[in-house]
């Protein structure tokens, strides 16, 4: 795509831009500013449970006074209680491990799809997309029945005599890995498949003709050329997984620390809005780098396609 040229715009053209733009400014950007502001407020027994609140009716004077009341206390609190930094760390680690596992499982699937006959591909694509349409909550819930101590997996393993005692999987980190890999697999397979499908088969044939063994051809040709798909897929898994709530809450145990769960507890159980806002701000700061990287990469792919 060459640089988009300035277009002569009619009134309608401006309205087309303005409506979604203003909507997103109000409902996406403004809320973040409010989160940031409240993260600097103090908790109070009131509705809403924090002070100070900005009252624009009070005029400039009141506004300045309110600014003076803001404090970094919540952020200090986050550094003092090790629950928080442990949650951040373990979220990133769990998301990282899960992303890697998803890649290990997803790559052969995407590769197999790209290698399958042309006529079969739309159906296979459909089969990957379909679970993505099915409720996330339902897919996570389905695993509870499988992973429980008296669940189907343990029944099966004991019936064929591999184990004598049920494996404890539910309410451990293993269950969380399984849940994340399962839920996010389509997000990784789709972009990966898209880049593998475009791959020029004649390159592999040339390599083969020149006596390159298949594994080496894969390592030297297929993998590097599919890298944009790998990166896009990994971002799509990693970023939302860091802030995941449903999976660690339903499949993880009480010792599974993930920041999404911590934030939820802080908000709904402890009703500490300022601290949960501070937790959200830090989480956002952690995620800004991968999000910006992801967007730049998407931009590059879009430009290449155009």
């Amino acid at each position: 795509m060459d640089k988009p040229a300035p277009v002569k715009r009619t009134l309608g053209g401006w309205a087309l831009i303005a409506v979604p733009y203003v909507w997103l400014l109000i409902f996406f950007l403004a809320p973040f500013l409010i989160v940031f502001k409240i993260s600097l407020s103090q908790v109070a027994v009131a509705i809403p449970p924090y002070v100070p609140t900005f009252d624009l009716a009070g005029g400039w004077q009141a506004f300045v006074e309110n600014l003076g009341d803001l404090s970094l206390e919540n952020y200090l609190w986050l550094t003092e209680d090790d629950l928080y930094w442990k949650s951040y760390l373990s979220s990133v680690v769990i998301a990282g491990i899960s992303t890697f596992l998803t890649l290990l499982i997803g790559y052969p699937i995407a590769y197999g799809m790209a290698r399958s006959p042309q006529s079969l591909r739309p159906t296979l694509l459909m089969l990957v997309i379909l679970p993505f349409w099915t409720s996330f909550l339902i897919r996570v819930y389905a695993w509870i029945g499988i992973l429980k101590n008296e669940g189907l997996l343990n029944q099966l393993l004991m019936a064929i005599g591999i184990i004598d005692e049920p494996l404890v999987i539910l309410n451990t980190n293993t269950a969380v890995y399984i849940g994340i890999v399962y839920s996010y697999l389509p997000f990784l397979v789709l972009p990966l498949y898209a880049s593998l499908e475009r791959l020029d088969g004649s390159l592999l044939e040339a390599a083969e003709d020149l006596g390159c063994p298949p594994w080496k051809a894969f390592w030297k040709i297929t993998l590097p050329l599919s890298l944009p798909g790998v990166i896009a897929g990994c971002f799509l898994v990693f970023i939302p997984a860091v802030g995941e709530f449903v999976i660690p809450d339903l499949l993880g145990g009480s010792d599974t620390l993930m920041i999404g769960k911590t934030l939820w507890t802080e908000f709904f159980n402890n009703r500490d809005w300022p601290v949960s806002s501070a937790v959200a701000v830090i989480l956002l700061i952690i995620l800004v780098i991968p999000i910006v990287l992801f967007q730049n990469q998407q931009q590059k792919i879009a430009e290449k396609q155009a």
Binding site: V35, P240, G243, F245, L263, W264, S276, L283, L287, F294
Partner: peptide
């Protein structure tokens, strides 16, 4: 890609 907890909060 934004975590839902942040959007919701």
């Amino acid at each position: 890609v934004m975590p839902e907890v942040i959007l919701g909060l």
